[in-house]
């Protein structure tokens, strides 16, 4: 699924430079706990989270996450956006809650991109 389609589906707003708008996303995960994200997300997924601090972008970078979707209308600060631009991780914000955003994207065919908890993290 294209980033543009995701933005449209969840009525979101892209916060970073438009350059990365065409990235293809095939899966997603929703979590607020970064350790859980680090433990289980597959590479190249979209991360939906209500957490909004620079750590989310750092986590994305370490775990090879394609894009971050901030739910519940969270808006990251300038520093967070700057890091995301620098590292080319598109940031999207939506006023929808986690439940709605996940529900809509799942319905639209975006797969769950989380590994079973006991899997290798590679």
């Amino acid at each position: 699924m294209k980033l543009t389609e995701i933005v449209d589906l969840i009525n979101g707003e892209l916060l970073t430079q438009e350059e990365d708008y065409k990235k293809d996303i095939t899966g997603a995960m929703g979590a607020d706990l970064m350790s859980d994200v680090l433990a289980s997300i597959k590479p190249e997924a979209a991360l939906l989270t209500g957490l909004c601090n620079p750590q989310v972008v750092r986590t994305a970078l370490i775990a090879d996450i394609r894009t971050i979707i901030f739910v519940r209308g969270k808006n990251p600060d300038r520093e967070t956006i700057r890091i995301a631009n620098e590292e080319q991780i598109p940031l999207i914000t939506t006023s929808l809650g986690m439940f709605e955003a996940c529900g809509i994207l799942h319905k639209a065919g975006l797969l769950s991109y989380e590994l079973p908890a006991n899997d290798d993290c590679a």
Partner: peptide
């Protein structure tokens, strides 16, 4: 549930539950 948040929400959404 053994499934992650995203999957569980997806299934509840399918059933018609909303926020």
């Amino acid at each position: 549930s053994p499934d992650p948040n995203y999957e569980v929400i997806g299934q509840l959404w399918e059933l018609g539950l909303r926020a």
